[in-house]
Design a protein around this nucleic acid. Structure first.
Length: 272
DNA sequence: ACGAGCGCCTGTCGGC
DNA sequence: TGCCGACAGGCGCTCG
């Protein structure tokens, strides 16, 4: 379930707490568990256990689709990939199927990293830049301006959709929000970046931000069996709406494959 | 530089 | 009912 709005929703919940759960801030890690070795990218499991014990959650940040837990002195980074999720629960709760990694705190709470498909990863590092250095700008940050986007598009010849999905170009967009942003901007996913006009680039810039902000406002999208409580899925214009009418013009939504990813467009609003 | 293909994994769904 | 392929919110790697 992880694109920028979903990861941001998880970050806010862990940082601020929610109805039935406290904020993680200030909690001290007393023990770590690893059920699937490959979930931990670095360091080795034995070093991980001894190094993370005793560290305290100082801050919970986000960069692109990465959650960044500032400890002391290390950083714990988590990427949920396709099916990852984080659960905060009491330590007397039973382990769930597909729990891959867990942290027990001095408060009696446990943070569990559940990930059926095992694509998710965690890193314990001194410096988060070791993991994050290749990422492009934050689409909701100050660096990401319409002028920047227009300029960068002019310098590339890639198809729009694979370019927007490239985390080294912009950090945080995934399949859902890319399809939604392109639809809102009335741009076909296969258009070469350098053929996008200044006006179209401005539309795309605005669309990316609006779609991400709406996703965050609706606490993300909940799809399939991975449910988190967000309801942005009820407001999709094109994503997973093949055959249904475009909310703008009523034309049936079409599905195509772009860069091996299922892609949804309105053929009327998004001509090639 | 860029795109296609594939690997990593498990689960769900639709068609036969 | 059971089997089988297609597909899934991601990304890193090869190979042209």
């Amino acid at each position: 379930m992880p694109e920028l709005p979903e990861v941001e929703t998880i970050r806010r919940t862990l940082q601020n707490g929610a109805d039935e759960q406290p904020s993680l801030l200030g909690m001290r890690i007393v023990q770590a568990y690893l059920n699937w070795e490959r979930t931990l990218a670095v360091p080795q499991a034995t070093e991980f256990y001894t190094r993370i014990a005793g560290q305290i959650i100082q801050e919970i940040g986000r960069r692109g689709k990465y959650l960044v837990f500032r400890l002391n002195p290390d950083y714990l980074l988590v990427h949920l990939r396709m099916s990852g999720d984080l659960r905060l629960e009491r330590q007397n709760q039973p382990e769930q199927p597909h729990d891959r990694l867990a942290l027990d705190f001095d408060s009696g709470w446990r943070l569990a990293f559940n990930d059926p498909r095992k694509f998710g990863r965690a890193w314990l590092v001194e410096d988060p830049q070791i993991v994050l250095s290749g990422l492009g700008p934050e689409p909701l940050g100050d660096e990401f301006t319409a002028a920047w986007l227009e300029d960068e598009l002019q310098r590339r010849h890639r198809q729009l959709k694979p370019l927007l999905l490239d985390q080294s170009f912009i950090a945080g967009l995934g399949n859902i929000y890319t399809d939604e942003a392109l639809h809102r901007a009335r741009l076909h996913p296969l258009i070469p970046a350098d053929q996008v006009t200044a006006e179209e680039a401005g539309r795309l810039w605005e669309s990316i931000r609006v779609v991400l902000l709406e996703g965050i406002q609706r606490q993300g999208a909940s799809i399939d069996w991975v449910y988190r409580g967000g309801d942005f899925q009820n407001y999709f214009g094109v994503y997973q709406r093949t055959g249904q009418p475009c909310p703008v013009c009523g034309t049936p939504i079409e599905r195509l494959v772009v860069g091996q990813r299922g892609t949804h467009i309105c053929p009327n609003c998004q001509p090639i």
